[in-house]
Simulated assay, not measured.
Amino acid sequence: MDNVAIVVEDLEAAVAFFLELGLELEGEAVVEGAVPDRMTGLDGVRSSIAMLRTPDGHGKLELTKFLAPAAVAAAPQDPPPNTLGLHRVMFAVDDIDDTVARLRRHGAELLGGIAEYEGVYRLCDLRGPSGIIVALAERIG
């Protein structure tokens, strides 16, 4: 897999959120023209993108803000975790409590609480910028 793309409303806020999570900014660009039009099946695409990579270099996340045509909201707003489609992106962290505290400063909200799974993991789901659900996993055993 090369990357996972997420459409966001506020690119700057989304980039700050994922930088706080430990991803590294690889680059930013504005894309438009025949290639994105052909890929998406939309006419007149113009979007700002930021490409981020995980610290180990194995995963990439593309954050996209559509400038034209405007992004459309999925219904319902902030869908629950059992909604069909892309569910969430999960990241391994060293300290889940510290990570949650840092992401809260970027507007993240816990969907439930931090749960322990069979003495092996501490896990949680957060809602981040543009309603993105991010899961965190801290290995404890």
Rank of each mutant, 00 (worst) to 15 (best):
H58F: 15
P69H: 10
P129K: 08
P36D: 02
L25Y: 05
A115L: 13
A92Y: 14
S47H: 10
A50F: 02
M1Q: 09
S48P: 00
C124V: 04
A13C: 03
E26F: 05
A74T: 14
R139W: 03
P80R: 08
E118M: 07
A75M: 09
A34N: 05
G107S: 08
L63Q: 00
E62D: 03
G119D: 01
L110W: 09
L23C: 09
T40M: 12
F17L: 06
L111V: 11
T83A: 14
R104P: 05
L136N: 07
K65W: 00
R53Q: 11
T54E: 01
D97M: 12
L111S: 11
E12S: 08
D125H: 15
E138T: 10
I6P: 02
T54Y: 03
S47W: 04
G44F: 04
I49V: 14
I96E: 05
V15E: 11
I49D: 00
A14T: 10
F91G: 07
P80D: 03
I49Q: 01
E62S: 04
L67N: 04
P81E: 02
D56G: 09
M90E: 04
D97T: 14
R53E: 08
F17T: 14
P81C: 01
L126M: 11
G131C: 08
A29Q: 14
A68C: 03
R122I: 12
L21D: 06
E138D: 07
G128A: 14
A135G: 15
E109T: 15
A71D: 02
G57S: 06
D98K: 15
E26K: 08
M1V: 12
Q77H: 11
L21T: 04
V30H: 05
R104S: 13
L111N: 06
A50E: 02
G85A: 10
D56E: 10
V8Y: 02
A108V: 07
D37F: 03
E9N: 13
G113Q: 11
R38W: 12
L110Q: 12
G41W: 12
F18L: 12
M51L: 15
R105W: 10
A92N: 06
L21Y: 10
R88S: 12
V134I: 13
D2V: 13
G44T: 06
L25H: 04
V134T: 15
L52I: 06
T83Y: 05
A34F: 08
I114L: 11
